[in-house]
Design a protein around this nucleic acid. Structure first.
Length: 159
DNA sequence: GCAGTGATCATA
DNA sequence: ATGATCACTGCC
């Protein structure tokens, strides 16, 4: 699963001359239209349009009148994506995007240096076994018992 | 525990 | 046009 692969990698954000490099510690998987917790479960709309793009596309959306959520599309045209929930220093998806200055200008763009947001891997991390914890996803109780309880949240165990 | 906040979507 | 909902956060 792609969600696991993102854990321990570095999310790199360049804004102006500043580069922020943050280790990803928490992600959630949203696996497609059949996943009732996934935005694409209600079909294709203007908001979730970019989820139907190709892997590596950035899906950013706005919730609760204040927060941007950062997702990476993982599958070709299935409406599936990974939510990046937190990194080493930024706990929580809303704080992460606030600190990294991520907003809808990145929506629909591809990960890559030219767009100022990309993923880098750490050689040491690739060769070490990561301790990963799985739990149900956060804030998706509306999805019904079956989908709300799926263990699609992945955390890096730090000690 | 819950208020704040505004885009988005369904209903009309 | 209106109203409900929301992949959250911070303060109680």
């Amino acid at each position: 699963m792609v969600a696991r692969d993102l854990l321990g990698k570095y999310l790199v954000r360049k804004v102006g001359n500043k580069i922020i490099r943050e280790k990803i510690t928490e992600v959630e998987a949203y696996v497609g239209e059949h996943d009732l917790a996934c935005h694409s479960s209600k079909g294709r709309t203007k908001r979730n349009e970019v989820m139907y793009g190709s892997p590596g596309t950035i899906y950013v959306y706005f919730v609760y009148g204040m927060y941007w959520m950062l997702n990476i599309v993982t599958e070709n045209r299935c409406g599936a994506a990974i939510l990046i929930r937190s990194t080493e220093h930024y706990k929580g998806p809303g704080i992460l995007t606030r600190e990294l200055k991520i907003d809808k200008s990145l929506n629909g763009k591809k990960l890559g240096k030219k767009n100022g947001l990309w993923i880098e891997s750490d050689f040491k991390m690739e060769n070490s076994k990561l301790k990963i914890i799985r739990t149900p996803r956060i804030g998706v109780s509306y999805a019904g018992e079956i989908w709300a309880n799926k263990k699609y949240r992945f955390l890096l165990k730090t000690r």
